[in-house]
């Protein structure tokens, strides 16, 4: 499938150009998902619902970069009911115990791509969370570009899935370790658009 996408994209006249191309991140199809172990027994899933940023690709030079800004208040772990408590889990995650969204409304990831063949295979970047910047490397599990069929190919869409992990304590988020694990696993789904 990915080879097909790649072949399609390479067939695009403009895509074959030597200039770096800038793509705007599509917030409806870009979601940083995270997994965190709860009480040592299961990996809970959550995601951030609001993202923005850009992807820059130079296929001729085989270089690229990505910048993503994530609104921390958009954290969503699917637990929206109070169930007798005074706050939902997401409300707790927004406090200073975890993401401290009032003081740090956004977190950012900026990285540059390492290529393997026709497409990026890894992003070496810097994650800034809670005012702390640390390196976080993401493995690109899949990548592809294609004309957007929804508007008859008048724009190009590139998409990727990437994964990685980091320790939240490295960013000063230490509350409830180890009941809520120090390790956070990431699975990022990203799409970005560029008019042709």
């Amino acid at each position: 499938m990915h080879r097909k996408l790649a072949a399609t994209a390479l067939a695009l006249p403009l895509a074959a150009g030597a200039q770096p191309a800038t793509y705007e991140i599509d917030p409806d199809h870009t979601f940083p998902h995270f997994m965190i172990q709860h009480l040592g027994v299961s990996w809970m899933h959550g995601r951030f619902n609001k993202t923005s940023g850009k992807l820059v690709l130079d296929r001729a030079a085989k270089t690229g970069s990505v910048e993503v800004t994530i609104e921390t208040a958009s954290v969503d772990t699917g637990a929206h009911e109070l169930r007798g408590r005074t706050r939902t889990r997401d409300e707790h995650l927004r406090t200073a115990d975890f993401f401290n969204v009032q003081e740090f409304p956004t977190m950012t990831y900026k990285g540059s791509a390492k290529w393997n063949g026709e497409w990026p295979s890894e992003v070496q970047g810097q994650l800034t969370l809670l005012g702390v910047t640390r390196p976080v490397t993401l493995k690109v599990d899949s990548f592809g570009c294609a004309p957007d069929p929804r508007i008859k190919g008048k724009r190009e869409v590139c998409g990727a899935n990437a994964s990685g992990s980091f320790k939240r304590s490295d960013f000063g988020m230490k509350f409830a370790i180890p009941g809520v694990s120090d390790e956070i696993r990431l699975q990022v789904q990203l799409e970005a658009l560029r008019p042709l």
Partner: peptide, 8 residues
């Protein structure tokens, strides 16, 4: 705690 912050 009632206001969502166990740490505080």
């Amino acid at each position: 705690i009632l206001a969502a912050s166990a740490l505080l």
